[in-house]
Design a protein around this nucleic acid. Structure first.
Length: 286
DNA sequence: CACTTGACCTGTCCGC
DNA sequence: TGCGGACAGGTCAAGT
């Protein structure tokens, strides 16, 4: 699921509720989803919640950080109080009752509230990394992570330099490379190219300086808007309270194949780049 | 080294 | 209604 705005939305939701709480119990339903020693987690107090790229981190007071990667279908949801359903036989998934069939790990806090890690496709993971080693360990990722696009020091020079090794790739595909820029995924890569009025198929080496500047701004705008709308929900994403994100109602091109461009009334088309669905306005991105 | 493709999983939707 | 295939917010390894 989640790209930078979705993970950031979850992070902010968790910060309000779990800082200072002590993890009293962990129930591991799917061992593949929890690649850590539970004894280093139980009885530890949460000191902060962080995000780097698409990785969420829950910092503990013993010097370790629980890092979560949600991949395509992961969710991190705090226990919700659900009203009793009157009549009928709704499923747990319909009601949002947790745990459900996608629940892989359950954390219980000392006040008896719970945090659920759900992940239908089981691509996601939770690992434990020493907080002091987060950077060297790339927050649990295999490869080094590129610059945070919403930090002050991100600018078009940084993007241009990082794109050099991807000169033969279409720009939209290059933006998915986490070593180039952190946190951009398939939705926001299409949106960033639209914002920049750049054809996502255009190879990096053919981009002008002005186009790279526009792409830089386009990334920042897409991600900032995403956060403002509480993230994108295509199917799975929910925030820490279990609520969907609204960005896709606002999005210019993603999932709008056959519709009119909100800016020029041109046709939005869907293509495939590197095996991923890609959306663009035929008229204003040429 | 740069780039492409498939694998990892489960569920849903669409066409026949 | 059943069944096969395509597809879904992401990496990662193996292949060319």
């Amino acid at each position: 699921m989640p790209e930078l705005p979705e993970v950031e939305t979850i992070k902010r939701g968790l910060q309000k509720k779990i800082i200072g709480q002590v993890i009293s119990e962990i129930e591991i339903i799917s061992p593949k989803s929890f690649q850590a020693d539970p004894s280093l987690v139980v009885n530890q107090k949460v000191t902060d919640v962080i995000r780097r790229a698409k990785v969420l981190g829950i910092q503990l007071d013993n010097g370790y950080t629980l890092v979560f990667h949600l991949k395509m279908s992961g969710q991190v949801i705090l226990e919700q109080k659900v009203e009793k359903f009157i009549g009928g036989h709704p499923t747990k998934d319909m009601l949002g009752i947790l745990p459900n069939s996608s629940t892989r790990v359950i954390f219980t806090f000392s006040d008896n509230s719970k945090l659920y890690f759900n992940d239908q496709r089981k691509f996601g993971w939770i690992k434990l990394v020493k907080s002091a080693e987060l950077r060297v360990q790339s927050f649990g990722m295999r490869n080094p992570i590129g610059p945070e696009p919403l930090e002050k020091d991100f600018n078009w020079n940084v993007l241009r330099d990082n794109l050099i090794k991807r000169k033969n790739l279409p720009i939209k595909v290059a933006l998915l490379d986490q070593t180039v820029v952190a946190g951009v995924g398939n939705i926001y890569a299409s949106e960033a190219c639209f914002n920049a009025k750049v054809d996502p198929r255009k190879k990096v080496k053919d981009l002008t300086e002005d186009e790279i500047k526009r792409v830089t701004w386009g990334i920042v705008k897409a991600l900032s808007d995403g956060i403002e709308f509480g993230g994108s929900t295509r199917t799975h994403f929910v925030n820490a309270e279990g609520e969907k994100g609204l960005f896709l109602d606002y999005a210019a091109v993603y999932n709008r194949e056959g519709k009119k461009c909100k800016s020029c009334q041109g046709l939005i088309i869907k293509i495939r780049l590197a095996g991923r669905s890609t959306f663009l306005c035929k008229n204003c991105q040429s």
